[in-house]
C-alpha cells in the first residue's frame, strides 16, 4: 500500500509556505521569482495528489496547464528583469522603490 495522500498534501502545503516565505524575505528578484516557482510546484503536487485520491484525470491535466503558464511567466518575467537590469544596476527588489505612498 502506498503512502496516504495526506502526507503528500502536507508536503505540498509546507512547500507552498516555504515558497511564500522566500518571496517575502528575499531581496533578489530572481530568487523571489524562483520562490514563485516553488509555490507553483506545491500546487502541482497538490493537484496530482488529488487526482490520485479522486481517481480523476483532471488534476493531472491542470498540472499540464500550470507548466505552460509557468513557462510563459518565466519568459515574460525574465524579460522584464533583463530590461530593467539593463538600465540600472542591481537586481534586488529593494532598488525599485521610486514610486511609493
Amino acid at each position: 500500500m502506498t503512502i496516504t495522500a495526506s502526507w503528500y498534501l502536507v508536503v505540498a502545503a509546507i512547500l507552498f509556505g516555504i515558497g511564500a516565505i522566500g518571496l517575502l524575505i528575499r531581496r533578489s528578484v530572481l530568487v523571489m521569482f524562483m520562490c514563485v516557482e516553488l509555490m507553483l510546484n506545491a500546487v502541482n503536487l497538490t493537484f496530482v495528489t488529488f487526482s490520485r485520491t479522486l481517481n480523476d484525470i483532471a488534476g493531472q491535466v491542470v498540472v499540464f496547464f500550470v507548466l505552460v503558464v509557468a513557462a510563459a511567466e518565466v519568459v515574460v518575467g525574465l524579460g522584464i528583469i533583463v530590461s530593467i537590469y539593463r538600465s540600472r544596476r542591481g537586481t534586488t527588489a529593494d532598488d525599485l522603490h521610486i514610486m511609493h505612498g
Binding site: 517575502l24 531581496r27 523571489m32
Partner: peptide, 17 residues
Amino acid sequence: LRKLQSGYVRNYALAIA
C-alpha cells in the same frame, strides 16, 4: 497609511501574505 505603502515590493507581498 502612506508610510505602509513603502514602495518596496517585498512589503507589498507581505501585505498580501
